[in-house]
Design a protein around this nucleic acid. Structure first.
Length: 944
RNA sequence: GCGCCUGUGGCGAAAUUGGUAGACGCGCCAGACUUAGGAUCUGGUGUUUAGCGACGUGUAGGUUCGAGUCCUAUCAGGCGCACCA
């Protein structure tokens, strides 16, 4: 008999469900604690053993907090919209809703077996209309808002309209696409349609003509974080740049707050750093350059204003509107050809091939300080999306400008004392400025010679702004998020087009349900899949969806055909868990006030520049409007590492069906082949299972070492094709969920990526059996007694309580599991069978191994769940030692040990050590220079 | 190129934050009990040496009575950003 984990786990999982053990309600009498996992996308492959890692870690934390008396919210749901279900639908015609439903069922089944304390009553799915109602609602709020830079918050667009009507753009400092200057008269003279188009310049959710990452294979655009190395993150298809009209979110308006907010939250430094890089704040100067013999002028952005005297050419981005304006007749053919060429290149080609290219426009700019004439070039090394899409080039002090100047034979003018620019540019921001200005321009009124770079930048900035040549400017790398996707399986936009003007559906009419379509592909005319939907027009008067053949542009209008991207539904889901059934609001004020924000968020680093930026932005927006009480959604973030696969190999001798064991394989000409890790144990191949694995191996022959076939191994991505996928279900079947939970934590530090290796799991399983065997005899009779525990027993259990209480808040779960094992070994060798000791053990173990602990707890006679026990406090009294072993060293070398009473004074210890016989041997008549006594540890005697 | 992180037995890893390495687990070795089990228990297990001992935390220096931990240089691996002006 013994520890029957299968029955125990089934029994308690059923009982938890029946008793609603994990249901949570707001309870003002208790302090709240909100634990959250990044919810999964339910993929068709189901869970492998790596997925639950973070869930287990947060589950342990949630259970621990509950034992400490907190009211713990630990919800779970599904990020159900996504490309795989849609791709599958295109291939098979199966509706993505059905695929998704099936996958969710499978996920749930797998999750339930592991014994999580999720409150499933609060489950959400982003594809449920009850849920995306609030995604659409938030979008309308963003559509109806602008960002006031002075007040640093979002405000209703109606307020902006009033200001425009009263005084035009004067006095308005708002986040916008383009700086506009309008008088009130101009604004008021505009038609309704013109006004609406102009407002797009300020709306937080706006329709914008932008360069987008177009993925032809997927037939949709992608956000910057969805493009990796010039190909799509999902599928790895090529991505090209294309100008398209798209819904965008003005995330850039929040750049500074997203940056500042990082200082207020408890995330790892590396993740914060990643976000800082992504936001990419850069302080610099904008300067106006006039075109020679012309009224035309343009703006450039530079962080090195001090190098203004070293500018020997200007460069425009090929996409810049200025290119056409500034190209002279003689150069127009060459420029046109160049632009055609760059347009054809994909993002990937551009990244791989970094050869220097460019073309002269024929025009010259005038240096605003020296009056010098500078040729204007076009080159694709200047990006249209950053800064102003135009730069002043200083080849001596910028490596890219340097490469360009060398290639085209342009002057390189060094400005820093002692720098050598014959081979490469001097990019460092250090040194003393010279040649600024050179003799030819000595009378320009600005001299930087003798200043350091930092001083020179400041001096130039001052000069530029005082003389109205430009202004100080902060630039961000962070771009506005492109929010349209040409897909079917996503949230529909609550937008219809009235004579081309986008209008939101009234809030009361939400949710706008995703319509049925016949095909999930784009239409023949190139519209997104929603173009196939029949019932997809808005009846404005009756406020309902109608057949699109009825569109008359008077009462009935076409609806938006794009859908929202994956990050839409995941941006505010944490708020929805607080009040998931509310049909009046995203979250009630009362629930929001109680749960506030997420205290502990657990998930992978791969969302650093996607979800974790969008979600922070989205919640800051809701905070501005008063719908969320806390500005930052995730107080503490823990990133669990990735679980990689550990593949096994067999070695087949070429052109035979004979396999040779690892250490003998060098003697033969062999081909390594992946073998299913599930038929290998401790790298030893189960030969019979191997023969049965595949028909072609039925009659395989083996060359063994020591009677065994040893496999080779390697760490690779966990994937079907490498036969290294391990399912949690298999582990649960063989060892039980409690063992799986313990082992996943024991594997190594939570944040570290590590390969899954089933080899060590026996140790964790043995530990649980040991606990069981302490409590039961061979006939399964409980053998616990009510006797007083001995001092040794108390010491062992209180040491454990102390260790566990210290480790859990630091997520050092791997050492906690070790501590459990040590304590179990101690108790076992002390033959401890005291109920009071084992009760304490069971409580502290319960977060890690809830099933066995519930069973033991109930067998000990408790009628309530172990979840509602009280977390024990460590009694330091029991930890006191009778004596302390000191290591005695001479000149830092440990020689012997001596015991002293815990409160022994320094002098006492010194005297005793010096009087010791062995000391005499090491002292050997040498003089003592110093004696160092480290309390409770070491006495080091320095001699010489 | 810029920024961040990691290097410890055959393997996964510990190390109270500067206190005298390798806890715990796997594996391996030996033994016990067993009508054999992928069970349980006990002991051993960094290298070297017959032994005392010596040497050991990627490499080379340094600070210190004392360094896996701090400093300098260097090598290797990983991650993020990247024509960002």
């Amino acid at each position: 008999m013994g520890y029957n984990f299968t029955d125990i786990e089934k029994k308690w999982q059923a009982r938890w469900k029946e008793n609603n053990t994990y249901r949570v309600k707001e309870d003002e009498s208790k302090e709240k604690f909100y634990v959250l996992n990044m919810f999964p996308y339910p993929s068709g492959a189901g869970l492998h053993v790596g997925h639950p890692l973070g869930y287990i870690a947060s589950d342990i934390y949630a259970r621990y907090k509950r034992l400490q008396g907190y009211n713990v919210l630990n919800p779970m749901g599904y990020d159900a919209y996504g490309l795989p279900a849609e791709q599958y639908a295109i291939k098979t015609g199966q509706h993505p809703a059905i695929t998704t439903e099936q996958n969710i069922a499978r996920y749930r089944e797998q999750l339930d077996k592991i014994g999580f304390c999720f409150d499933w009553e609060r489950e959400i799915r982003t594809c449920d209309a009850d849920y995306y109602h609030w995604t659409q609602w938030a979008f309308i709020k963003m559509f109806n808002s602008y960002y006031d830079n002075d007040a640093c918050c979002a405000k209703p667009i109606a307020e902006l309209c009033e200001k425009l009507a009263a005084a035009g753009t004067a006095g308005i400092n708002a986040a916008c696409g383009k700086e506009l200057e309008l008088t009130a008269e101009q604004w008021n003279a505009m038609s309704e349609k013109e006004q609406q188009e102009t407002l797009m310049n300020w709306r937080i959710a706006f329709l914008g003509e932008t360069m987008v990452n177009w993925c032809p294979a997927l037939g949709t655009v992608l956000a910057n974080d969805e493009v990796v190395d010039g190909v799509s993150e999902r599928g790895g298809f090529p991505v090209v740049q294309k100008k398209m009209k798209q819904w965008c979110l003005r995330v850039s308006a929040y750049a500074q707050r997203l940056l500042d907010g990082l200082n207020t939250i408890d995330w790892t430094d590396s993740l914060k750093e990643t976000q800082r890089n992504w936001i990419g704040r850069s302080e610099g100067t904008e300067m106006e350059f006039y075109v020679k013999d012309s009224e035309k002028h343009f703006t450039i952005f530079t962080t090195r204003a001090d190098t203004i005297f070293g500018v020997t050419f200007m460069v425009l981005a090929p996409e810049s509107e200025l290119v056409a304006e500034l190209t002279t007749a003689e150069q127009s053919e060459a420029v046109k050809a160049y632009i055609e060429r760059t347009k054809k290149r994909t993002e990937r080609e551009r990244m791989v091939d970094r050869s220097v290219t460019g073309v002269f426009t024929g025009s010259y700019a005038v240096n605003p300080i020296t009056g010098e004439n500078i040729p204007i070039w076009v080159s694709d090394y200047v990006l249209s999306g950053y800064g102003t899409g135009a730069i002043m080039a200083v080849p001596a002090h910028d490596s890219r400008d340097y490469a360009f100047a060398k290639h085209f034979g342009i002057e390189i003018r060094p400005l820093i004392e002692g720098c050598d620019v014959s081979e490469e540019s001097f990019d460092a921001k250090e040194g003393t400025i010279i040649n600024s200005p050179t003799a030819a321009f000595a009378s320009c009124g600005l001299s930087l010679n003798g200043l350091s770079v930092v001083e020179a930048i400041a001096a130039t900035k001052k000069y530029v702004s005082e003389n109205n040549l430009g202004r100080i400017k902060v630039n961000y790398r962070l771009r506005d998020a492109i929010f349209s996707r040409q897909s079917y399986w996503g949230e529909p936009f609550p937008i219809y087009y009235k004579n081309g003007v986008p209008c939101p559906i009234p809030e009361e009419c939400l949710p706008l349900q995703l319509p049925e379509v016949e095909k999930f592909l784009p239409t023949e005319s190139g519209e997104p899949p929603l173009g196939h939907a029949k019932m997809w027009a808005w009846d404005e008067a009756n406020r309902c969806i109608v057949d699109k053949t009825l569109i008359d542009e008077k009462n009935i209008f076409p609806l938006e055909l794009n859908t929202m991207p994956g990050f839409a539904g995941s941006s505010a889901y944490y708020l929805r868990y607080m009040d998931p059934k509310n049909d009046k609001a995203l979250v009630s004020e009362q629930a929001d006030k109680y749960w506030q924000n997420v205290d502990l968020y657990v998930g992978g680093t791969e969302h650093a520049t996607g979800h974790l930026i969008y979600s922070r932005f989205w919640n800051k927006f809701l905070f501005d409007l008063g719908y969320s009480v806390v500005e930052e959604p995730f107080k503490k973030l823990v990133n669990q590492g990735m679980i990689q696969g550990r593949s096994n190999f067999v070695y087949r001798i070429k052109d035979t069906n004979t396999f040779v064991s690892l250490n003998l394989s060098k003697e033969y000409d062999v081909t390594p082949l992946h073998v299913d890790v599930n038929i290998v144990k401790n790298d030893e191949l189960d030969i019979e299972a191997f023969r049965a694995w595949r028909p072609e191996y039925n009659d395989a022959e083996f060359i063994l070492e020591d009677g065994k076939y040893i496999c080779g191994w390697a760490v690779e991505k966990m994937s079907k094709s490498m036969y290294n996928v391990v399912n949690p279900d298999t582990i649960v079947e063989n060892f039980g969920a409690d063992t799986l939970r313990l082992y996943e934590m024991f594997l190594g530090p939570l944040e570290q990526s590590k390969p899954w290796d089933t080899n060590g799991i026996d140790g964790c399983h043995r530990f649980l059996r040991k606990i069981w065997n302490i409590c039961f005899d061979k006939e399964d009779n409980l053998v616990l007694t009510d006797e007083q525990p001995t001092r040794e027993e108390l010491k062992a259990i209180h040491r454990l309580i102390k260790k566990v209480s210290e480790d859990i808040p630091n997520f050092s779960y791997n050492t906690t599991v070790s501590a459990f094992m040590i304590c179990a070994n101690e108790l076992s060798s002390l033959k401890c069978n005291k109920r009071s000791v084992m009760e304490l053990f069971v409580i502290v173990l319960a977060p890690f191994a809830p099933h066995i602990c519930e069973e033991l707890w109930s067998l000990m006679g408790h009628t309530t769940s172990v979840c509602d026990a009280e977390w024990p406090k460590c009694n330091e009294e029991y930890l006191k030692e009778d004596s302390i072993k000191y290591t005695i060293s001479f000149n830092g070398k440990a020689r012997f040990t001596m015991d002293f009473a815990p409160e022994a004074a320094r002098e006492e210890i010194e005297a005793a050590v010096l009087a010791n016989e062995q000391s005499q041997k090491y002292l050997d008549g040498k003089s003592i220079k110093k004696i160092i006594v480290v309390p409770k540890k070491i006495v080091n005697i320095v001699i010489g």
